[in-house]
Design a protein around this nucleic acid. Sequence first.
DNA 1: CAACATTAAAGTGTCGACACTTTTTAAATA
DNA 2: TATTTAAAAAGTGTCGACACTTTAATGTTG
Lengths: 229, 229
Amino acid sequence: MQNESTANSIEATNIPLTERLFDALQRAIVEGEIPQGSKISEPELARQYGVSRGSLREAMARLEARKLVERKPNLGARVVSLSYEQLIEIFQLREALEGMAARLAAQNMTDKEIEELQRLLNQHGEQIAEQHGQAYFQKQGDLDFHYRIVQGSKNKQLIELLCNDLYHLLRMYRYQFGMRSKRSQQAFEEHQYLINVISARDPEMAELLMRQHIRASRRNVESVLLEKL
Amino acid sequence: MQNESTANSIEATNIPLTERLFDALQRAIVEGEIPQGSKISEPELARQYGVSRGSLREAMARLEARKLVERKPNLGARVVSLSYEQLIEIFQLREALEGMAARLAAQNMTDKEIEELQRLLNQHGEQIAEQHGQAYFQKQGDLDFHYRIVQGSKNKQLIELLCNDLYHLLRMYRYQFGMRSKRSQQAFEEHQYLINVISARDPEMAELLMRQHIRASRRNVESVLLEKL
DNA sequence: CAACATTAAAGTGTCGACACTTTTTAAATA
DNA sequence: TATTTAAAAAGTGTCGACACTTTAATGTTG
């Protein structure tokens, strides 16, 4: 009955349709496949994905809760569009949250996890040396690094919040603005410092360094963005 | 067609049913009307509120996104139950987020807002003097105070996150554990210090004090809770 | 021709129905 | 009587339908 060959059709699994749909839409939005600020027509989108409106609506409700779409009663939904101001606000959030994450990571990461983190960073170092300027891997690597520290905090609420909510927004702005970092070498070194103080089990210092690191990253974004406008 | 006299029926407005439903359910969960950890039967709940399952499901999807209910495919949904550990985790989040909020508030609150905040605190002072031990108003007052500072940060993401997500969880645990503070006088004084440094436009100090304040509050919760178990 | 009124089209809000899963109840067997 | 099996009940996943609202198209009048 269902058209499985539709361009955007969702693969069949035992996972609920609504959930697959939610993931697919989230990805599509984050990667700009559905452009920022564009209006969403429920019947059309449902048709594209080969699902009923009911299922779509459930997924949309969750997207709305994650601030990826905005809905106004009777007027329909549109994909959010990130403004410069919002981006700055997100960096302030990150500073607070990841600062705390680093603090907790210094207390709660296992030695093995720290070793693995160091290994990951070494890889990044090689990549930076080899493919100088390849922004994509650097950005991905940066996110990986931060991701692990958040996990290392062992605070489930924090992990949820950062990894499931905030990082998607962050990836979204990277796709949108096509950011490329001019400070990968600098960031790399800051990451190394961070590992050092975490190894030394110094929570205070870990938080401080992480906050500085994120502030520096924000300043970079500001300058890159301002020269674009 | 619809039974308007059902016990839990939602009033008729122009606001979408799903939204009213979401608010009603959130309130019911936060206040313990629907008890922690209880299983939710969609048909039954839909009947209770006099709505269709479709509408209910949409509301549930949003509640799930806010971590107020947990759903497992084909097995149904249940209200979350706050554990001691989770509560501690939430306090760590608050420390980070409200610390940042206080920092920003010291920069961004208007003089008028600060005045009003002082007025609010004076009221609290009177209430504490009058009805010594009346925990409810104190707790409510405490939340009011924190609420205003968050608003004063002028960071929309932060406001959303704290006021729409986290505070509900907090109110929920207060209802659940029936907390009463033994340190209202102490908290009152800390609030006053906070206003002082915000007035002095000292972001650094504002963050520091707020974090101390929340840490103290957490220690209080810990001790009260531990003597209960 | 522009401004307004009037349909028509599209879109959203809400519901009820049905298939498939899990849980419960009942029956049957060792 | 305890355990396994079978049938029934309840519950979840997904869909299509219809009423009401907004937007677009069309026609009408000054």
